[in-house]
Simulated assay, not measured.
Amino acid sequence: MTTTRTPAATTAPGTRQPAAPVRRRKTPSQARVALAFLAPALLALLVLRLLPAALAVVDSLRHHSLVDGVTRYVGLANYGDLFGDPQFRQSVRVTLLFSLVVNPLQVLCALALAVLFNRRFAGARWWRSLVFAPIAVPPAVSAVIFGILYRPEGPLDAILGVLGIPPQPFLTSPEQALYALIVLMSWVGVGYWMTFLIAGLQDIPQECYDAAAMDGANAWQRFVHVTLPLLRRPLAFVLVADTVSNFLVFAPVQLLTGGGPEGSTNLLMYDVFRRAYSVGDIHYAQAEVVLLVTLTLAVVAVQYRLMQGKGEE
Rank of each mutant, 00 (worst) to 15 (best):
Val47Thr: 08
Leu149Ile: 10
Ile159Arg: 13
Asp203Gln: 15
Val22Thr: 14
Arg93Val: 10
Val224Asn: 00
Val249Asp: 01
Thr27Leu: 14
Ala19His: 01
Val137Asp: 01
Asp210Asn: 11
Leu100Thr: 03
Ala112Lys: 06
Thr296Gln: 13
Ala212Gly: 06
Gln30Ser: 11
Arg222Ser: 14
Glu175Pro: 00
Val162Cys: 00
Ala56Arg: 06
Gly191Thr: 02
His225Thr: 12
Gln90Ala: 09
Glu288Cys: 05
Glu153His: 15
Leu228Asn: 10
Tyr73Thr: 11
Ala298Lys: 10
Ala285Asn: 08
Ser91Pro: 10
Tyr192Ser: 07
Ala211Tyr: 09
Thr294Met: 14
Arg125Lys: 11
Ala143Phe: 04
Leu105Met: 09
Phe98Ser: 03
Arg275Ala: 13
Leu66Ile: 02
Ala110Ile: 02
Phe223His: 03
Pro169Val: 07
Asp157Glu: 04
Phe250Pro: 03
Gly216Arg: 07
Val299Ile: 13
Leu268Phe: 08
Ala9Ile: 13
Val101Leu: 12
Phe237Lys: 01
Leu61Arg: 13
Thr11Trp: 13
Leu228Tyr: 08
Leu82Ala: 12
Leu46Val: 10
Phe237His: 08
Gln286Met: 14
Tyr79Gly: 03
Gly200Trp: 02
Val67Leu: 14
Thr11His: 12
His225Leu: 15
Ser142Glu: 00
Pro104Ile: 10
Arg305Lys: 10
Phe98Thr: 05
Asp215His: 11
Val107Phe: 09
Arg233His: 08
Val238Asn: 07
Tyr73Val: 11
Val300Met: 06
Pro139Val: 07
Arg32Lys: 09
Ala140His: 01
Phe250Trp: 05
Val74Ala: 06
Ala39Met: 15
Cys208Ala: 14
Ala276Asp: 02
Arg25Ala: 13
Val293Glu: 00
Arg151Leu: 12
Gln176Trp: 12
Val67Asp: 08
Leu171Asn: 03
Arg62Lys: 11
Gly216Tyr: 06
Leu228Gln: 07
Leu76Glu: 00
Val22Asp: 00
Gln254Phe: 15
Ile145Ala: 13
Thr294Val: 15
Asp81Glu: 14
Ala56Asp: 01
Ala158Glu: 00
Asp81Phe: 05
Thr10Asn: 02
Thr2Gly: 05
Ala213Gly: 07
Gly191Phe: 05
Tyr179Arg: 12
Tyr277Gly: 07
Val249His: 02
Leu171Met: 07
Asp81Gln: 14
Trp193Lys: 08
Asp242Pro: 00
Asp85Cys: 07
Arg151Glu: 07
Leu55Cys: 07
Phe223Cys: 02
Arg233Trp: 01
Gly154Val: 04
Thr6Asp: 06
Leu113Trp: 03
Gly123Cys: 02
Ala219Met: 04
Gln254Glu: 09
Val162Thr: 09
Arg23Thr: 14
Thr296Met: 15
Val188His: 11
